[in-house]
Design a protein around this nucleic acid. Structure first.
Lengths: 147, 147
DNA sequence: TCATATAGTCAAACAACTTGACCAATAAGG
DNA sequence: CCTTATTGGTCAAGTTGTTTGACTATATGA
């Protein structure tokens, strides 16, 4: 493989990821929720049973302070609640509210819609394969801003 | 396709893109250049004939003020030079210096190295196909931070 | 030639993140 | 059990990369 191809691949990855994230965010807002793209990825970690701030920080690839601030924001907007952790009195369990669940569903719908546009371009099977390969490459790496 | 699969795909895309960008940056630094990931993508637009600040802004998906600041930074570190534009007295052509070319080559090497690790995981053919599909999806969309 | 658009920069404001300091609850070792 | 180290979380301050707004200089077009 030529050297410059690798950079082209990276650029394509970033462009695709950026486009998708932006569309999801637009879709979520169109469904009546205000937010930023990070919300959706936070929600996937909070559902179904909640998570601690530290869990969230690892999932998002940021410091726990940053994760804590995000939770503040989500709580202020009514998407999540901090509850005492059943097993550990230091920790607090962050769980989705009813509105948080609704927003999660909206994000999933918006994502499905955006991906459907890709299926129209390269075919559903190809999209599925894309996802499969990507999952094998970066199984559960942190979901964080790309540069 | 199930709704939640689409969010999973997005997360995988982001994780993969993030990992790749980070590795490239580390590789570039290991080769003796200081910088941040955006540099490499700026370079791909500046090579081979240079570009204006506005071109760069479009390529990176940021405002031209942000692009201008990036160019300041790159110039201060000796990677690029601002030269008068041959055809338009308002514009200035940003071109790579010799050191800028060296850094570009380093970025390409680092990228090739990072992608090679992927080829070991899923096979070179699969990686090539991945790149092909992604290019069809997001042909020349802006390369910008993903969330 | 006069209005309008475009290329670029300066400056200030802002958003998301980090680093550092700290407290409370737990876990580990004698 | 005490003591010490570790872990979960927050508060506060600082940093970074970005945007918005204002402005100048050149180009374009009726």
């Amino acid at each position: 493989m030529q050297n410059s191809e690798a950079l082209t691949l990276t650029a394509a990855l970033l462009a695709a990821a950026g486009e998708l994230t932006q569309r999801i965010n637009e879709g979520v807002e169109a469904r009546g929720f205000e937010g930023r793209p990070a919300y959706g990825f936070a929600f996937t970690r909070l559902a179904p049973d909640g998570a601690t701030v530290t869990d969230l920080a690892v999932h998002l690839g940021v410091t726990k302070q940053a994760a804590s601030q995000l939770v503040d924001e989500l709580a202020r907007k009514g998407y999540v609640e901090r509850r005492p952790h059943p097993d550990d009195a230091r920790a607090r369990l962050v769980v989705l509210t009813e509105r948080g669940w609704a927003c999660t569903r909206a994000a999933e719908e918006a994502a499905a819609e955006a991906v459907r546009a890709w299926a129209d371009l390269i075919g559903e099977g190809e999209v599925r394969m894309l996802g499969d390969r990507l999952l094998r490459i970066a199984p559960n790496g942190p979901v964080r801003p790309a540069w």
